[in-house]
Structures are given as C-alpha cells and as structure tokens.
Design a protein around this nucleic acid. Structure first.
Lengths: 148, 148
DNA sequence: AGTCACGATGCAACCAGTTGCAACAATGCG
DNA sequence: CGCATTGTTGCAACTGGTTGCATCGTGACT
C-alpha cells in the first residue's frame, strides 16, 4: 500500500533544521529515504538504501536517526504483530492516526481510519486523565482474501 | 496493578493437556509461574523463577512456551511502548481485551476496558472484512500524577 | 512394564536493536 | 575565515529474541 506524498520534498530536513537539529550527510540521506518511501520500510532496508548514497553509514546511525524522528513525533514505529521476527517498520506520521491490520497468512498490511479510534483516544485522555503522546493499535488476523 | 485470579490453579496445564499438548517438567513450571503471577512478567523474570524450580531450564524453552501459549490464545504479549529496551511482557488472556497505557515518565502501566474498543474491533471485522485473531492497543504518554 | 514415534529440549550461532566511548564535524562566534 | 563547543558518528560489546540441529523424554500402544 503506497503512502500518499502529502509533504513537500525536504520536509523532514527543514522541519528538523528549524528545531535546531544538526544536519549531517548521513541524516540528509536517511531523511530523504524515509520521505520518499512508497511503503513501510524496516531499519535494514533504510540502511541498504542509505549506503548507496553514503557508503560509510553505520546501522547505529539509522537507529539513532529513527529514534530522533520518533522523539520529534515525525514518524510512527510499527511492530505489525511481529510478523517477521522482531523487526519494526516505520512510516511518516500522518495527520490522522490509523489502525494497522496484518494478515497472518499473506502478510499484507492494511490501514484503517476510524472515528471510533479517535473517540477511544479522547475517552482515555478524559476518563483516565492520561495525556497521550503515541497511540498504536495493531491487529493480527486474516484478510478477506485469506479467510477459509 | 495486580491481575485478578479468575482461573482455577492448573488451568493452563489442563487446558493445554486437553488439546493434546505434551506436558514436561519445564512446561509445568513455566505455566505455574504465569498462572500465579500477580503482575506483568517479562521473559527474563519467568526464566529466573522457573530455574528456581527446574535449574536446567534454558531461556529458549521459555520463549518457545510463550509462543505456544500465544498460538493457543492463552496469553497476550505486550510491548508497553518499548519503555524498557525491546523486551516484552506477558499476561493471561482475560475475557475482555483492554487498552494498556504506559507512563513515559514513571513507567506505570494502567489497563482500561472500553466499549469503544470493542466497537472498533467489530467495525474492523465488518467494514474491512478482516477476521481478528489478536488486537493490541497500546498508548504511551503521561499519567495524571506525572503531568506538568 | 516395555517399546517407539515424534514432539520438546538445550546448545550454539544467529538477527534486531541498544549503549559506552573515543574520534569527528556542523554550527556559532570572533 | 579559523576556532571552539558540543552534538553526531562509528566501532565494539552488549541485551532480547529466534533458528537449526542432535539428543532426550512424553504419552500412546502393546
């Protein structure tokens, strides 16, 4: 499922720069890759792509950059129900958070926006007096084409 | 937050045995620990407790038993927003699934049941024609005592 | 009780992600 | 423009979790 290209190219770079974050060759490469990604990427894929531009990049730098983006709320980290080992997937934060459904048979990932999801978050904020920073809802099961 | 002791002792053992799963010394020890746990445990804690009963148990056996329980839908695996590294926590499956909120400051974990959560799952099943096996909603943020 | 098939175990080696630390380089200032 | 500050990088070593494989032991059948 391709992600929509809602932001101008360079958005992550300029957003971070405007917050006083230093721009290095490595970061520029990594941010560009995440920005122009057409689907969910894992850390190893980002590393491989980044090394095509900057062969010296270390995987540690990938993880540190991803963690920087998480801290600034610019990407979301997904487990996708640990379908493939323990690795994580990353996507640019979209204006509306959505549910991720992973098919346990074919591995396809579907996204779903719902007013109930938004409502549930509001309810937690209000009834539990809990200030939400990140909310993640992930579902594992069987998609319509894989059901018996 | 203590978990309620809703099931008779030996429930996991007899449940699995009735499905034709072999019972070994190691499994009996691990299942007993999970059953009588008064809070969310991680794999390392389960290993340490199990080795008090059966000193020869290997961590691999812990992970394989946890994965067995997941496959049979008898426990839920939680990330708790990766608050502490990459480790996971485990809890017996309760009749009603609930949301887990983790405070990013004090680390406290709160559980919350909501009709909106149940409704959201129903909506996914119906509108996305997606048959749910596991649903996990985790929230990271700041609890009422930790908010500015 | 004795035998046997096959599932479960432990070990070693591996994958994903994190941390401590010394060397390095992006920015701000003169 | 050159320099100092301080954040960033790469390396090595580590933690948490998984996999392949030879050995072991459960539970079924006699």
């Amino acid at each position: 499922m391709p992600l929509p290209h809602t932001e101008a190219p360079g958005y992550l770079v300029s957003n971070l720069a405007s917050r006083g974050v230093r721009m290095t060759r490595q970061r520029r490469a990594i941010l560009g890759i995440i920005e122009t990604a057409s689907h969910h990427l894992d850390a190893a894929q980002i590393l491989r792509k980044a090394q095509k531009q900057e062969p010296e990049v270390d995987r540690v730098t990938i993880y540190r950059t991803l963690s920087l983006l998480k801290r600034h709320g610019l990407i979301d980290e997904l487990d996708l129900m640990h379908l493939q080992g323990e690795k994580h997937f990353y996507e640019r934060k979209t204006p509306r958070e959505h549910v991720h459904m992973t098919c346990l048979r074919c591995g396809r990932v579907t996204e779903f926006e719902s007013r109930l999801f938004d409502g549930l978050k509001k309810q937690v904020q209000k009834e539990c007096r809990f200030q939400i920073a990140v909310a993640r809802m992930e579902i594992g099961g069987y998609c319509s084409s894989c059901r018996a």
